[in-house]
Design a protein around this nucleic acid. Structure first.
Lengths: 229, 229
DNA sequence: GAATATTGTTGTTTTATATCAATAAATTTT
DNA sequence: AAAATTTATTGATATAAAACAACAATATTC
C-alpha cells in the first residue's frame, strides 16, 4: 500500500508548485504542517470517482491518469509532476467526478482543503493562480469533448499521439508508458481498434512502433489526420 | 443588430449576480462604469469561437446556448439569466473555445475583463465565488463528456430531456425553445435520430409531444434510460 | 397571401465502430 | 523455468448511428 510521511521543508522543496512562493513563509509553513506525503505505486488509485474531496492533491513526482469510470473507462488526461491533480473538485461541489491512478511510482502531497482555501482567501495572488489553473483545465476539457464527439478513429488516435508528444513527453520518440487498452481509453475507442490503427500508422510510416516505444516520423500527417478528424 | 446602452444602477439592478454584493459599493460602481449592456435578438451570436475574450459576459436576461462549432455543432449547455456566460476563458488562456448565441431575446452585461480581474484580486471573497462558479462549470463538462462518449442514442436523448426538465425549465411540461436540430446538437446525434427517438418516446408514452411542447409523463423511465446509457 | 426557405418526418442504405473469436506474445506469479 | 495471467494482434461478424432521399409541415419573406 501507499507509504505515508511528512514533508521536511516545503519552502525548499525541489518539487514545489511554481506559484507556491506567492504565499508568505508563515503560510507555506502552515501548508507544510497540514501536508502529508503519500507515495503511490504504479497502478494504485489516488482518488476515486464518487467519493468526496477533503484534500488538495499536489503531484510532486511521477505521472497519473485522470479518468472517468464506467462500463468502459475514459482517460481525460495525464498529469505530470509539478501540477495539482484536481482543485476544481475542492472549489466546486466536492464530489470527485473522476478517478485518478498512478501510471508510475508517484509522490503526492495531500493538503487539507480548508487550510488551503483559507490561505487562498487571504492571498488573492495565490488564489488567482489557482483560478487560472482551474480555468485552463476546464478549457482543456472543452477541447477534449469536441475532439471526442466529432472526430473518428484515425483523428482521435492522431490526437492522442500528438497529445503524448506535445504535452507529456515533449519528444518525437517516447515510451508511451501505457497499455494499448489505456491508449484506447485515452482515445475513446475499443482496444482492438487502437491496435489496428496503430499498426496502420506503422505500415504507412507515420510512426515507428516497437512494443510501447513510439517514434513519430511524419508529424505533419498526424496533424492533418487530427484536423480532418 | 444588437442594441447597446449603459446601466443605470448595478447596485439596485434586479438582475444582478447573487454574489455581486460581496464587493464594496465603490467597486460595484467601478463595474458599472465599465459595463455596457447589449441586447441580442434571438439567433444572434454573442461570442465567437476562436476570438479572444476581452470582457466578462454576464447574462442578465434571456437564455443562450454555448456550443462548439465544427462540421456539426455540439451544444454543451444552455445558460439562463443570472449567470456569467464564460469566466473561464477570461481567467484561462483568453481564446474562446466555443461560441455563444441567443436562444431568445437576451440582455448581456459586458464588463471589461481587466477591471473585473483587478477587483477580484482585491476582494478575495468575490474571487472565491467566481472560482467556485468556474469549478462547477468544469465539473459539469466532465459529466457531459462522460455521458456523450459512452451512452447511446436513447440514453443521450433521455439525458437532454432530463437536463431541460431539471436544470432549465424546472417543470415536467415545457416548450423546449429549440429546434430538433438543436436538440440533436445538445445530444450529439443526427437530427433524424433525435426526431426518431422523440417519436419513439412519444409512442411509448414516456413523453407527450406536440411541436416543441414536451410533457414528461414517465420520468422514472427517462432516468432508467439515462442510467443504462 | 403566394412563394420560398427552413424545419420536421419516415423509410432505406451505407458506414463506422464495437463485439466476438482465436491465437500470439509478453508479463507476472509460482 | 514452468504455469498462469494479462496484453496484443488480426480477421470475421454484428450493430449502432450517420447519411441519403423524398416528401410534409411550418415559418419566413416578398
Amino acid at each position: 500500500m501507499a507509504k505515508v510521511s511528512k514533508p521536511e521543508s516545503c519552502l525548499s522543496c525541489p518539487y514545489k508548485w511554481k506559484y507556491l512562493n506567492l504565499l508568505e513563509d508563515k503560510d507555506i509553513n502552515s501548508i507544510q504542517r497540514s501536508c502529508t506525503i503519500i507515495n503511490f505505486k504504479k497502478g494504485e488509485t489516488i482518488c476515486k470517482q464518487g467519493t468526496d474531496a477533503t484534500h488538495a492533491l499536489y503531484l510532486a513526482k511521477g505521472m497519473v491518469k485522470l479518468y472517468i469510470e464506467g462500463k468502459k473507462n475514459l482517460i481525460l488526461k495525464l498529469i505530470k509532476s509539478g501540477e495539482y491533480i484536481d482543485l476544481q473538485t475542492l472549489f466546486g461541489d466536492k464530489t470527485y467526478k473522476y478517478s485518478v491512478a498512478a501510471m508510475e511510482d508517484t509522490m503526492v502531497c495531500m493538503i487539507n482543503s480548508e487550510i488551503l482555501q483559507d490561505l487562498a482567501k487571504q492571498n488573492s495572488d495565490y488564489l488567482f493562480e489557482l483560478t487560472k489553473t482551474i480555468s485552463d483545465s476546464g478549457n482543456y476539457v472543452y477541447k477534449k469533448i469536441s475532439d471526442i464527439s466529432r472526430k473518428q478513429l484515425r483523428g482521435r488516435l492522431a490526437d492522442s499521439l500528438l497529445y503524448l508528444r506535445n504535452e507529456i513527453f515533449n519528444s518525437d520518440e517516447f515510451d508511451m508508458g501505457m497499455t494499448r487498452k489505456e491508449l484506447a481509453e485515452l482515445s475513446s475507442m475499443s482496444m482492438e481498434n487502437a491496435v489496428r490503427i496503430l499498426s496502420e500508422f506503422k505500415k504507412d510510416k507515420i510512426i515507428s512502433l516497437e512494443g510501447k516505444r513510439i517514434k513519430i516520423l511524419q508529424i505533419d500527417i498526424l496533424k492533418k489526420l487530427s484536423d480532418i478528424g
